[in-house]
Design a protein around this nucleic acid. Sequence first.
RNA 1: UAUUUACAAGGUUCUU
Length: 369
Amino acid sequence: LDSAIWLFLEMLPRKLRPNDHLLTVLVSGLCKSGSHHKAVDFWCKLSENGFTPNIVTSNALIHGLCRSGSLKIAAQVLKMMLEKGMELDNITYNTIISGTCKEGRLDEAFKLKESMVKRGLKPDNVTYNTLMQGLCDSGRMDEAMLILNDFEKECLSPDLFTCSILIEGYCKIKEVDKGKLFLGKLNNWNLRPNHVLYNSLIGGFCKIGTIKEASDLVKEMKIKGIARTVVTYSILMHGLCSIGCVEEARDVLKMMREDDIKPNVICYTLLVDGYCKMGNMEEARNMFDDMSSSGIDPNKLTYTALMNGFCKVGKLKEASNLLDEMINGGIIPDAATYRVLLLGFCKQGSMEEAYRISQLMLKKCNFSD
RNA sequence: UAUUUACAAGGUUCUU
């Protein structure tokens, strides 16, 4: 990415207009890889040289900044966009409304919706869905439901995002049956249910401990021709593991094979963690080894789950071997990983090994955690 | 295949 930036900056004095699509890809790529400061610098340099990025590229930057929790910087970029005379669009507003909601500042998010109206823009489905999501995240389901009136007032029609946000909201507060009622309302909105709606409900039933209802919904998906996904089955596995039914969760792998869906690293991590939580470290290790032979590489979360398991049963040597193994494999541990190990060693009174690990952490860490 | 909204995995006050 750095050489891509360099190349683009080289073009500036030659009065070559960089390709807008590529600029957008580059800016969002920089943000995704955590270099949002570089993305901002890049945007500024382009502006200073008379090549102010267009609205799409600028929106991508705003989005990247919102995602990394840098709303303050996003506001500064927004200000510069306005100074350059850029016309903000719905996507700009929807993006910052979403970012503001994610920070829990709902009042401010609603004010932003008002200011987009003042600017002559018409809030759309994404705007209302985003605000709804904010309300659902805070458990304010009654207010979320009231947004449906706004849809009608604005002659908008709720979409599958609207439905899944509401279903997920009800599932989160364990009112799964209320969520399920939306399946019946879809016809009124000319919608056909999709896998996300079902996945959310399956998760809801798992959460309230009614695995039977959950697996019935999987059957219903098959009957109705709604595609199951790896998420569908991982939700089921998570539900089973969380009530201690790891063997049943493992059987889900068979269901997946019959359904021609390949398990991914998340599925295996669920099983590794499931066995760890049961204290069955032998099977946990077996699963860990199985996944490699299935060609799926364990990631940071897989290692941390397994290390946590070994720590809990006092096998600290195994845990610290895993730390070395993951680092040698090029997987960067994070704060959660180190916390598991440090807690494990401290509890057992092995302060020297805890110290060694903390030194390792300080040497390797990127200070973001 | 240029930008915005929905679904899955690890640590989380302590003890067990």
